[in-house]
Design a binder for these strands. Structure first.
Length: 562
DNA sequence: TGTCCTTTGAAGATC
DNA sequence: GATCTTCAAAGGACA
């Protein structure tokens, strides 16, 4: 029912639901005319089964109307091209709300193909030139020769892709030509194909695979000048000026994720008071957020190693015994990264919003929401994670130092004992240890630098650093080399090649299906990509990949296929 | 009871 | 330096 109302409301309805966000109406139309948030979040589960049919229907509709797509789509979206940041601030919330409430495709609140809410992906009508630009930039990362697709030569076919597939995948990205697969009727017979046949739809949840914001990443490495634009990393956790951060908006509009409801004005309010120079160094051991972070809190209990015992009984123990004792020591868990922190905070909300309980499915949702977060919002978590790493690093170094000290002292005592036993008549051989330098304090030596976001080097060292951006864009497939993912990738590549070949033969490359027609505009394109367009072969080897697509049954994307 | 799933990111290991 | 692997959280599912 929610989907039905959504489809009938149209863009104006989206504006109504969004309340004060009327200015966002132009963006509501993206990805379809039905984007009114559904008020029936409980129907998410029920609607899972409708995803497939919706996909097919959308496929038919969009593929048939792709030519008029550009005409219907509001033009202002193109303007955001020049002001990506404003776009972030303005477009973010409603689509967060639309994530559960306002499915662009009626019947399934999670279905967001492509990531219409992502300012990094789409904000303008299809322009053939833009599409080409986008594809050219994306292509090399997917330029996987059929022969190279399978590194494991033992595998007879791509259907047996192993985890060692050396595919340089655009990390977690929805392939720009995904729609060719999802919406192509050429390869899919009408009906309700299994969700697994849709490479971007998760078989379990029906959630489209999120485009990975390698486009996003370049934004996190906020330049020192840009850092001042993000809210204080801790301010988001503290109600600003008495404004409840998690309050329900008036009018009864229930934001599915109140935590994300910090609107643009609020963000600017916070950010206006934040500058890199104002970031107080995190006090070690003093959690700076309201989020309970075991990595911060628990280490006092978990991570503090027992004081090194210098008793002869211990020092006389064999290395094996010592090793065993070390293994018995409480395992120091890794600090939570930004996404984990986000997940920890948002999980309960997501679970409450939908009936899904499986963490795997929830995590998929959270992963998608993570991508949909604005850079400012993500920056908060990155900052938090950075502080956690800081604490962890400090403790780690402390432990290491203590361990070394303990070991050297043990060795010293053992040697002393051995020396005493071996040569009672000889002079005791005392091994002198180099004194620990006070300045070796890990917390002070590392923390000071990490704690000063004002320092450009520190900013670069943060997870939001441009360097990390590059690495992320070139992130190996290993992160997502699940069998189905690889198969999807193979299918993506094959389908892309197929489409490319078909388009080139018909001269229609610029008129892809609507979803494909939402190229990442250059304005929102990662600067890294823009600055250093990857070199890639201009030859697309379509003739090589086409047989792959034709020869490989689509079922290879199924889990059961492997 | 233990492992898997599923996500992203960081760290360490490996080449 | 690039690439790969592991592990953080979470809880249902499954062997």
């Amino acid at each position: 029912s929610g989907g039905g109302s959504g489809s009938s409301a149209g863009a104006a309805g989206g504006g109504d639901d969004l309340g004060a966000n009327d200015e966002l109406i132009p963006f509501q139309d993206e990805g379809g005319e039905e984007q009114e948030p559904s008020s029936d979040s409980a129907s998410a589960q029920r609607d899972l089964d409708e995803v497939k049919s919706s996909l097919v229907n959308e496929s038919e509709n969009q593929s048939s109307s792709s030519d008029s797509e550009a005409e219907r789509r509001p033009q202002p979206a193109r303007d955001t091209f020049q002001k990506p940041r404003d776009y972030f601030a303005e477009v973010r919330r409603p689509q967060d709300s639309a994530f559960f409430k306002g499915p662009p495709y009626p019947g399934y609140p999670f279905l967001m193909i492509p990531d219409l809410s992502s300012p990094y992906l789409s904000n303008g009508p299809l322009s053939p030139g833009g599409a080409r630009t986008y594809l050219q930039m994306k292509w090399p990362l997917l330029d996987v020769p059929s022969s190279a697709t399978v590194k494991d030569t033992r595998s007879p076919s791509p259907a047996h892709l192993s985890n060692k597939v050396p595919v340089v995948q655009h990390p977690h990205h929805m392939h720009p030509l995904t729609p060719l697969i999802t919406y192509s009727n050429d390869h899919f017979s009408p009906g309700s194909p299994p969700t697994h046949l849709s490479p971007d739809i998760d078989p379990k949840t029906g959630i489209p695979r999120p485009p990975h914001p390698s486009e996003l990443s370049p934004y996190y490495p906020l330049s020192p000048g840009a850092v001042g634009q993000i809210p204080h990393p801790l301010g988001w956790l503290v109600p600003q000026q008495g404004q409840p951060m998690y309050s329900l908006p008036p009018g009864g509009f229930r934001h599915p994720y109140p935590a994300l409801a910090m609107n643009a004005s609020m963000s600017s309010l916070v950010s206006s008071r934040f500058s890199p120079h104002m970031v107080a160094p995190a006090h070690p051991g003093l959690p700076t957020s309201g989020i309970p972070h075991p990595a911060i809190v628990s280490p006092i209990v978990k991570q503090e190693p027992a004081p090194p015992s210098l008793s002869p009984a211990v020092s006389a123990k064999s290395p094996v015994t010592v090793k065993k004792e070390e293994e018995k020591k409480p395992h120091v868990k890794k600090p939570l990264n930004a996404f984990m922190l986000y997940m920890k905070e948002m999980r309960a909300k997501v679970v409450a919003e939908c009936t899904l309980k499986e963490s795997a499915a929830i995590n998929q949702i959270l992963g998608r929401k993570w991508h949909n977060l604005s850079r400012e919002e993500q920056a908060k978590y990155y900052e938090l994670a950075r502080k956690e790493r800081q604490l962890h690093s400090g403790k780690k170094k402390k432990r290491k130092r203590e361990k070394q000290l303990s070991q050297t002292q043990s060795q010293q005592q053992v040697q002393e004992a051995e020396g005493a036993l071996a040569s009672k008549s000889k002079k005791p051989c005392v091994q002198y240890l180099p004194p620990e330098k006070p300045c070796d304090s890990p917390a002070s030596s590392h923390g000071s630098m990490l704690d000063s976001p004002a320092t450009p080097s520190a900013a670069l060292a943060s997870p939001a650093a441009p360097a990390a951006t590059h690495s992320e864009q070139a992130q190996p497939l290993s992160l997502t080399t699940k069998p189905e993912t690889r198969a999807q990738l193979a299918l993506h590549s094959a389908a892309f090649l197929s489409a490319k070949a078909a388009a080139s033969s018909s001269g229609q490359m610029g008129s892809q299906p609507p979803l494909l027609s939402r190229p990442l505009p250059l304005g929102s394109m990662p600067t890294a990509l823009l600055a250093s367009p990857p070199s890639f072969p201009t030859t697309l080897h379509a003739h090589q990949a086409l047989p792959v697509l034709q020869a490989q049954p689509l079922s290879l994307v199924t889990k059961s296929a492997h």
